[in-house]
Amino acid sequence: MMMNISPRLPGENNKDYSYRVIKANIMSLNLRPGQVISEIDLAAALEISRTPVREVLAMLKEEHLVEVYPQVGTYVSKINLQLIEEAAFMRFTLEKEVLKLACASFPVEELLELKKNAALQKLLLGQQGQAPEFHKLDTEFHHIIFRGNKKENVWTSITRLSTHYNRIRLLSEMERSYDDTIRQHLRIVEIIENKEMENAERMYQEHILWPMKNWEALYHRDSPYASYF
């Protein structure tokens, strides 16, 4: 089992460290949906004891990212279409309203951060193999909008429900161009800056709901990724 092992953060204990690294490998699809994993292998890869790894796997099970079958084994959860639909519904319902709030009032310093983020995304236009980097910028882009509206706890709730949604989104970004998504982000910045509240709902239909139609090819039975679902 190959994992990307990032350096330990200052003051990070074994449990926090293993949780961060294992979850990051699941969310990045480095640990594939349906892949068998074991406490022994994970502990060896992280060079820690099995106890914190066992605790982390229990936490990830609660987050629907790990499945444990007694007497059989532990697996990375396959991507669940119902959880994707629920996350998309939550994101669309809440994000269009938060965008409207941002049109009414948005701190200058947060708008500057949003523009910086969008500028970094723009540098990725036309580039291949940058899906993981784009995905990080994408997540932070939306986080900034919630933060600027003092809705960080709402964003945390969205993030917790969006683990399966974010995995299929990353898979789509790896297979398809993410140029359209970057252009949509640039447009969202314009909507906030120009206070175009009337365009918020349409923008998030295009940004969140419409791309889901393209995802059907990923879980079709003839797809090379059919086993991920």
Rank of each mutant, 00 (worst) to 15 (best):
K78W: 05
R54T: 15
P7W: 15
E216A: 07
L9T: 02
M27E: 14
E216L: 07
A119W: 03
E193K: 13
E63Y: 06
L57M: 07
A226L: 02
F89T: 03
N199E: 14
L111Y: 10
S49I: 04
V56G: 09
A45Y: 09
R169H: 01
E97W: 00
Q127E: 14
Y19N: 12
Y69P: 01
M1V: 13
L209T: 01
R91K: 15
L94I: 11
P10A: 10
Y178A: 00
H64Y: 14
E109M: 06
K195S: 07
Y17E: 08
Q71V: 11
K116D: 08
H207C: 04
F141N: 04
R221D: 07
E85K: 11
I158D: 05
T156G: 11
G73W: 10
G11P: 10
A24L: 02
P224T: 12
V98E: 08
A102R: 03
Q71Y: 14
T156N: 14
N149E: 04
F134M: 02
I40F: 14
E67Y: 13
K78H: 10
R160Q: 12
Y225N: 08
Y204Q: 04
S162F: 03
E62H: 05
I79S: 15
T163W: 10
H207T: 05
L57I: 03
I192R: 05
E193Y: 05
N194Q: 15
E113Q: 15
I79M: 15
L46E: 02
N199P: 00
G129T: 03
P10Y: 08
I84D: 05
N153M: 06
M1I: 10
V108H: 12
H220M: 12
A44N: 10
E206N: 12
N166Q: 15
Y75E: 13
H164D: 13
K116S: 06
L60D: 13
E110V: 04
R91H: 12
M90E: 15
L94Y: 09
A44H: 09
S162D: 02
C103L: 09
H164F: 12
F134R: 01
S49W: 00
L42R: 02
T181V: 11
G73D: 07
M90A: 14
L137W: 09
V154G: 02
N80R: 15
R176A: 03
A45S: 13
D16W: 05
E67W: 12
S172E: 06
L31V: 01
Q121T: 01
P52S: 04
S177P: 02
K100H: 07
I84C: 11
